[in-house]
């Protein structure tokens, strides 16, 4: 054998006190560096939010912060006037009424949706989505509604529209004026990974047209695609579910994600897939501090 083997223990044994000191200092440095790395990773979501707010404040210096919650109506005066006219007879009112009725209906076992949510489901929309540390997944309000049904031996509802969108609309309505307060647990790497995954989705180009969400809502924000002005990222989640005039029905946020994906010629993902939930998590965190104003009407 060319190189004689040495006993492993001997390799690790400190030869003298000086070596012990070196090992101690080294260990201390490793600890400090790992703590700093963890801190920087945890600080990133808030840094991302601040950077985004700063970008839009510079881009739209005359728009007040809370106005971004009104989407393009914050900076497109003509569209705003039309929207305000529509708000005189809001087309989402029927969905709110229907949603209230569905919400108050009891399941076959006698329980109701109110039993599944904090504060009996009234005024809680601002806390969704949240990261469930037990299952290691992001939980959106639509998912929580279906989880409630399944917990009570009811079939889950189809996502995106219909009864589920109506219930979600009612829950959003009871939360109007509450400030979005989505948390990314700073001590949970899985939550940070979910946030990062949503962020990656937002900034990644996809589809044959090679667009990222950010291509429209950051790079080209304020410009128009055909007759439709492009809204800011911040404030995008505040008003969902929304009555979409183009479809003549209520639409959940994730159905809107799917539509965006389809418009850039990407195959939309399943509603409530991990990717869409993570995207909703990222977007909602970006809108922290905005007041909920949903449900709303959109073109």
């Amino acid at each position: 054998m060319l190189f004689p083997l040495r006993a492993p223990q001997k390799c690790l044994e400190p030869k003298n006190k000086e070596n012990v000191q070196v090992i101690k200092v080294f260990s201390f440095l490793v600890l400090i560096i790992s703590q700093l790395m963890a801190w920087s990773a945890l600080a990133e979501p808030e840094e991302d939010r601040q950077a985004m707010l700063s970008f839009y404040e510079k881009h739209f210096p005359n728009v007040e912060f809370q106005e971004f919650a009104n989407g393009v109506y914050a900076f497109d005066e003509i569209a705003r006037q039309q929207w305000l006219e529509i708000e005189d007879f809001p087309p989402y009112e029927i969905a709110v009424d229907e949603g209230e009725a569905y919400f108050n209906n009891r399941f076959s076992n006698g329980n109701s949706y109110a039993d599944c949510f904090e504060n009996e489901g009234q005024g809680v929309r601002q806390n969704y989505p949240y990261f469930d540390t037990n299952v290691g997944k992001v939980i959106t309000i639509e998912l929580a509604i279906n989880q409630c049904r399944e917990k009570n031996s009811e079939k889950p509802l189809p996502y995106g529209k219909g009864e589920l969108a109506a219930i979600s609309s009612y829950m959003a309505y009871t939360s109007r004026g509450n400030t979005i307060d989505v948390k990314v647990p700073t001590n949970n790497p899985a939550a940070l990974a979910a946030f990062e995954s949503g962020k990656q989705f937002y900034y990644s180009r996809r589809g044959q047209l090679n667009f990222a969400c950010s291509s429209c809502h950051i790079q080209a924000v304020g410009l128009s695609i055909r007759a439709d002005p492009l809204s800011t990222t911040v404030g995008q989640v505040t008003h969902f579910p929304a009555y979409r005039a183009r479809w003549g029905e209520m639409v959940t946020l994730q159905r809107r994600f799917a539509e965006c994906n389809f418009q850039v010629r990407a195959r939309p993902l399943a509603l409530q897939s991990d990717q869409y939930r993570n995207l909703e998590y990222f977007l909602s965190f970006m809108s922290n501090g905005f007041e909920l104003n949903g449900p709303a009407s959109r073109r």
């Binding site: 840094e47 985004m52 970008f55």
Partner: peptide, 17 residues
Amino acid sequence: KQAETEETLWRDRVLRN
């Protein structure tokens, strides 16, 4: 190919202060 290149390229678009 798009997905493979976007694995790293997306980071260049992230807004930073």
